[in-house]
Amino acid sequence: MKSVVALVVVTIAGMLCFVAPAAARDRVHFIAADEVVWNYAPQNRNIISGKPLRALRPAQLGWVYRKALYREYTDATFKTLLPIPPGERYRGLAGPTVHAEVGDTVIIVFRNRTTLPLDIAPTGVVSKPMPTAVRPGTTVTYRWPVTAAAGPASADTSSLVWAYISDVRQGTVDSAGLIGPLIVTRRGEARADGSPADVDQEIVTLFSSQLEDQSPLVAENLQDRSINTRGINGHAGSFSPDNAFPSINGYVYGNMPMPALREHSRVRWYLLTTMNGFDGHTPTFSGQTVVTQGNRADAVNLVFRQAVVDMVPDDPGIWLLTCSNDIHLALGMEARYEVLP
């Protein structure tokens, strides 16, 4: 009988220990909107087919455009970029990953270093103050309290993803590239860095049709002869479709650096998308299957939403991650990922 009591006591103590709230943290990020010269195909080849890139379309400026991107710095001086680990270079266009556990507060020190009025506005959580246009060259600090309402519901996995975007001129700025992930982990299920403890590797991918004709930087791109080397006229009839880049993390035709996964590890893919009329994506994995919303799949319907996809790779090799919408595929919305034994 004594041992039973002891067992009960130990069990309760263990449970208490498990549910004891981790100290709520302030998670501070120094994020700037920077103007960056972005290359959709930096390897200058079609890496999937092994052939040269397709010819430029008649009114296509090229593969390189000036864009506005969120980038993370080490401190409030915004002098030193936070280095991106070599294994995460695939992140490309996507903004820095912001992690939080339910109960935490995310603090974003935001500096607008572009020439455009921009902000940084989260979905899923309420920003204080409410984001409004931040004048070029100025800095604003936002607090994002991460409440239970922003965290996983009962049917969700241990973490979920929201997008933060600039919403000053919504519908155009996401074609400048201003979007990044906010990952929220259920209370008690996070590591110290906010990532979910039951996941070995997280990979963020942005499936986006970047429409350069709608970018707020289109005029600069047209005028800049280092970008518009052929002197394309912005009023050309096919300017709009010829400068559309359905891309994964801002890369086309397999130019995304390959994420490397370990066989039998627990990999969580967070899928983001933008929301223009040319977005309507089906991210499709070859070689492995995934579980999303409790269902087995290898293709995910990603239309104006975010998705969380869990994979335990079991088939080593180099595999495709593509959009199964044929127009997007033809325009290069394809990447590779590698599973190491």
Binding site: I47, I48, S49, G50, G254, S286, G287, T289, R296, D298, A299, D314, D315, G317, I318, W319, L320, R336
Partner: peptide, 17 residues
């Protein structure tokens, strides 16, 4: 889709090393 295949049974040509 979905089943386990080695490269020889993938039935999809691309640069996969």
């Amino acid at each position: 889709h979905g089943l386990f295949y080695t490269k020889s049974s993938e039935g999809a040509p691309y640069q996969d090393g």
